[in-house]
Design a protein around this nucleic acid. Structure first.
Length: 605
RNA sequence: GGCGCGGUAGUUCAGUUGGUUAGAAUGCCGGCCUGUCACGCCGGAGGUCGUGGGUUCAAGUCCCAUCCGCGUCGCCA
């Protein structure tokens, strides 16, 4: 048994052709034994004419090797750092122990040293043990050196453990792991596809799946009951700090003869133990997670992904402030975020409001009720006449800060939501950071008026079952029901303000599908053309089914407490969707292009 | 595609109002050091100041263009 870097116990025989023990393994119990270690030469410290200390690092840890002869010192001095080295010697108790190291009680006195893989570079692109401080492009290009850093490697290890735990739990819950095709058909909905040219079919293309959406629904139609997959998904969209370009992984799930609560119950059972065990914080919400209807979430938190660790909420101040004489409020929706016991300075307030404006794209306004009960600062001069009403309506107490937003409903809500998160991040007394706070956002609208088209469009995805089914769609078609009020049995799982996953009760009935499409001006032919396999399959009878797909990368990111998605991906691409290490995308030979029937034209810059 | 920040030694950074030979730390090379663990001390080497153009007696510094990196908005059923 030995200890792997994050403290989990493994039982395994780690003796290999090149070593008897790992570099993280030796303790006082092995003193006196002859051992062989193999690892990377992390450092060599020469502290005297015939005394030096080498540090050997492998996956499991580091061990000190002590050189007590001039010859041995010379041997190690001649080896470039980061070379792989095999050391045979005797384990000895240290004269001066290092309590900071698991192996700090012992050292190895070498009798034989062999270089297994020579590092040809005596200057590295960055110091391995401080690679996180290096330029990110260099880290990505030399990712194999970056990953030697235990502080970088630990996130990849965490990812492996989280995936293993999720997989075990899913199997435990009766789910069957089924892989679905990577080379498949382009889907007309959603994100931009990655296309793969077909050699055998000139001019035709495969697409990499944006998600196994249709396949998992077809599995339900095929009679499988509970499916899951750690599924690679491909979308050709621009990157973000929390969104890798190109590809990512989902814990994809689907259940037959099941509804929303069945899907919730499984994740509420699967996720909290994983988060509590592997997360940076010990506390995770337990079942049932709070359910918040979409409309309520937008009104109360100004976001469809609220961070429930923040105890601030949005109040409506439209009637109260829209006629206070402050021009930007006139005729607009006005939202207020009241922050009690606010201790920020004037300068900090300006900075906070500027941050909100940058993020929300809308101006934020403010005033305070000072310790003497006076309205001061910001736009307070417009409020003096209705001071008592304002204090009463917003339940202000001395020391309160009030952040404000104004505009059309959506813009005012969104800006207020940014205010909530910004003020929360600034005020520790309103932000209980050390926990994982989950919630379900439910009852998403089925339709919306498209900003560009001005016409009715699907709000999220057309696969979702409208609440009320065929009946409500028919009423909407007759004009008896406003289609904008129709909600879908669709849900998001949100944790700490991060959208972890989207899911839905699917529309498994071809008749309802067609009706749903007709509301946005499409018909049966469009459904058949867009989703032929699913539509056909459903005409042979499909079980009602529902599912969800939490993003593995984002989950690991939350658990690791990292702000960049690249820190939890073994070989990430940069912002421009390039793999700097592999030099991808790259040019290919003319012969390859010919075989694929592709002619590359001059690209326009 | 828009906006913001950045690019100076192998690495991380400083560089004033445009003004002498562009600095520091770390790493590297050499020397000293017998218990270090970010070892310490002494010395040395190391620069296309992202690239191109311009203004100027003089540009790392000012102007224009461009490339690259990160963040953010658009985008992500």
């Amino acid at each position: 048994m030995y200890i792997i870097p994050n403290g989990d116990d493994f039982v395994e025989n780690i003796k290999t052709a090149y070593r008897s023990h790992t570099c993280g393994e030796l303790r006082m119990a092995q003193v006196g034994q002859s051992v062989t270690l193999a690892g990377f030469l992390e450092n060599f410290r020469e502290v005297g004419a015939g005394l030096g200390f080498a540090v050997l690092r492998d996956f499991y840890g580091t061990t000190q090797v002590v050189c007590e002869t001039e010859e041995m010192v010379k041997t190690f001095k001649a080896i470039n750092k980061e070379s792989t080295v095999q050391v045979t010697g005797t384990v000895r108790e240290r004269d001066s122990k290092n309590p900071k190291l698991p192996t700090g009680d012992i050292e190895v006195v070498p009798t034989a040293v062999a270089v297994l893989g020579k590092c040809r570079h005596n200057e590295l692109p960055f110091p391995v043990n401080r690679s996180r401080e290096a330029d990110e492009a260099a880290r990505l290009k030399y990712r194999y050196l970056d990953l030697r850093n235990p502080d970088v490697k630990k996130n990849i290890l965490l990812r492996a453990q989280v995936v293993a735990a999720l997989r075990a739990s899913m199997i435990d819950h009766g789910f069957l792991e089924i892989t679905t095709p990577i080379l498949t058909a382009s889907s007309p909905e959603g994100a931009r596809d990655y296309l793969v040219p077909s050699r055998k079919h000139p001019g035709k293309f495969y697409a990499l799946p944006q998600a196994p959406q249709q396949f998992k629904q077809l599995l339900m139609a095929s009679g499988f009951d509970k499916y899951f997959q750690i599924a690679p998904c491909f979308r050709d969209e621009d990157a973000r700090g929390d969104r890798s370009p190109g590809e990512f992984y989902q814990l994809d799930r689907e259940m037959a003869f099941a509804g929303q609560e069945d899907v919730f119950a499984v994740l509420e059972d699967v996720l909290p133990p994983v988060f509590a065990k592997y997360g940076a914080y010990d506390t995770a919400s337990s079942a049932p997670f709070v359910r918040i209807p979409y409309a309520e979430s937008m009104e109360k938190y100004g976001s469809d992904k609220p961070d429930l660790r923040i105890d601030l909420t949005v109040s409506d101040a439209t009637g109260l402030l829209s006629d206070c004489g402050f021009e930007p409020f006139a005729g607009n929706t006005v939202k207020a975020v009241v922050v009690s016991d606010f201790a920020g300075t004037r300068k900090q307030i300006d900075k906070l409001c500027a941050d909100v404006e940058v993020q929300a794209g809308n101006k934020a306004y403010w005033f305070r009720l000072d310790e003497n009960g006076e309205l001061v600062g910001g736009i307070s001069k417009f409020l003096q006449e209705k001071k008592e009403a304002v204090i009463d309506a917003l339940s202000l107490t001395p020391g309160c800060f009030v952040g404000l937003s104004a505009g059309k409903l959506g813009a005012a809500q969104k800006t207020a939501g940014v205010l909530v998160k910004t003020m929360g991040a600034f005020c520790p007394n309103h932000f209980k950071k050390e926990q994982y706070a989950f919630c379900w956002i439910v009852d998403f609208p089925m339709y919306e008026i498209g900003e560009e088209s001005g016409a009715l469009e699907f709000c999220h995805n057309p696969f979702s079952m409208p609440s009320g089914g065929l009946e409500v769609l028919k009423k909407a078609a007759n004009g008896a029901v406003d289609p904008l009020t129709i909600t879908a049995d669709q849900y998001d799982l949100v944790c700490n303000g991060v959208e972890l996953s989207s899911g839905a009760v699917r529309n498994h009935d071809p008749e309802i599908m067609v009706e749903a499409f007709q509301l946005v001006g499409l018909g049966e032919e469009d459904v058949k053309a867009k989703f032929p396999a699913m539509y056909n399959a459903f005409t042979y009878g499909a079980p009602p089914h529902a599912g969800i797909a939490p993003g593995v990368d984002r989950m690991v990111m939350l658990l690791a407490g990292e702000d960049s998605i690249r820190e939890i991906i073994p070989f990430p691409m940069n912002k421009n969707a390039q793999d700097l290490m592999m030099d991808a995308p790259g040019v290919v030979t003319q012969a390859q292009l010919d075989e694929l029937h592709i002619r590359v034209t001059e690209t326009e810059e």
